[in-house]
Structure formats: structure tokens, C-alpha cells
Simulated scan of single mutants.
Amino acid sequence: MSDQVNFGDAVVSPEEKTRRVGQVFSSVARRYDVMNDLMSGGMHRLWKDRFVNRVKPRTGEHVLDMAGGTGDIAFRMAKRGAQVTVSDINADMLAVGMERARERGLEGLSWKQENAESLSFGDAQFDAYTIAFGIRNVTDIPAALRQAHRVLRHGGRFFCLEFSTSDWPGFAEIYELYADKMIPRIGKAVARDEDSYRYLVESIRRFPKPEAFKRMIGEAGFAQTGYETIFGGLVCIHSGWKI
């Protein structure tokens, strides 16, 4: 891994990026879901529904939801009968998720603080690995993908929901302007944290394009890799299988 990485548009050491990302999510944890609604006009709920439909969690399956924080994906999968372990590097995000689960009367979820780059789980523990809007915040993405492959059983599936950049003429330019000018302002007004949301916008721009990320998933050992675009590529569902 390089001794310098991007934290948004800034160039920092890997250790500094991990520390700063932790600060970002500790700062926004309590307002994270409200901000998601405001930034996406509620569309993130539909994207997550579509994502879980692609994962097809089944009764009795063991699923690792990495960067699962506030529980949005885990709750949907648990309702379908899957046994879900929710993991996140950030304890504040997990605390919000556990509180939300209690409020909804959802039991049976496991919660564990984990670094996606160095999971403590044994080999071949899970039937599916999911990560939604989290992989771009990982310092060493190839390491996280290799760990995902390691903890999956033979025939297990990897699914990732992540932002990218839209290629729709007109819409792409409008979204870029909105992301640049409005999202940090919304973050300042609602979450009282303009800088964290400026980082999140920058991190989306620096995330690999769909074809490049597909190659990275394949290089981690996954087969039958592919992706589905939403909103002309603004959001992508990536997938791969361990065979």
C-alpha cells in the first residue's frame, strides 16, 4: 500500500486517513440518517431496498454487513430471516444502530466493532458479505476486498452499494453543482459539520469508476463480477461470487 493516500482531496498518510474518517463518522453519527434523507430526497431508501433485493438474503443464512453502522441494510435483511452480524469500525455509528434496533424491537442481530481491512472472523464464516456506502471510506480497499473473500464460504456472494458519477448528460453537471455547493451547506445546517460532508463529496469523486472497481473485486479473488447502475451510474450495485 502507498505511504500516501487521499482523504477526499487531501493527501495524507494511511494512518491519518483512518483517524480522520473515524472523526467524520463520530461527528455525523447522530444525524446520519436525517442527512441521508435530505441529501438524496429519500431516494437512498429505494436504493437500499433494491440492493437487498439483489442480495436475496434467506432464512438461516449468515450475513456480514460491513460498515453497517446505523443498521439500515441489516434491518432489511433480518426481516427476511437472515442472521446478520453488523460490523463497523466506528463505535459511535454502531451505538446509533443498536439504539435504533431496540426502538424497533429487532432482536437477534449481532453487533461487532471491526476494521474491514483486518477482520477478526475466521475463514469461510458467512454466506454473504454486504457493504453499503462504506467501501470508499476504507483506507486500503484491496485489503478489505481480500478480507471479504476470505470470510465468505464457498459459493458465498459479495455485494457492494456505492456512489459513483453519473454519465447522464445534463443531470451529471447539475448533480456536481448540487454536491459541491449544497451538500456541505446542508451538513453545516443540520449536522453542524460542513467539513465532514465536504469530505464525503470529495470521496465520491475519488472512488474508482465502475469498471475499475469491478477489476479490483476480481483481483481479490471473486468470480462472475458485475455491476448494475442506478441514475446513470450515480449509484452502483457491485457483485461477485467466491467459487
Rank of each mutant, 00 (worst) to 15 (best):
Y32R: 13
F75N: 04
A220C: 15
R31I: 00
I204E: 12
D92N: 10
A95D: 13
I135T: 08
G122D: 14
D180Y: 00
P208R: 13
G41D: 14
G170A: 07
A82C: 05
Q224T: 03
A144I: 01
R76F: 00
L109C: 08
A132H: 09
G81H: 04
P14D: 02
H238N: 15
A29W: 01
D33N: 03
N53K: 10
Y178Q: 11
V235T: 10
R58E: 15
E228D: 15
N6M: 08
G156V: 06
I204Q: 13
I204S: 09
E114Y: 02
C160V: 11
D92K: 12
T225K: 12
G134I: 03
T130A: 14
D195I: 05
D37T: 01
R150V: 07
I204M: 09
E173W: 11
T18W: 00
I131D: 14
S164V: 14
K56N: 15
N137P: 05
S118H: 11
L46I: 02
T59S: 08
S166R: 08
H149D: 07
L177F: 05
E103K: 07
E99K: 00
D127S: 04
L177H: 11
R31D: 08
K48V: 06
G81T: 07
M66P: 02
V138A: 06
S2C: 03
R198P: 06
P210N: 15
F158I: 04
P14M: 02
R185V: 05
W168T: 12
A116M: 04
F25L: 07
G69I: 06
F75P: 00
E16M: 01
R58S: 08
K112L: 10
V24G: 03
T139A: 10
Y227P: 01
F207S: 11
L234Q: 07
R136T: 03
G170Y: 10
L177G: 11
H238Q: 08
E99G: 02
P184S: 14
I230D: 02
G42D: 12
T229L: 11
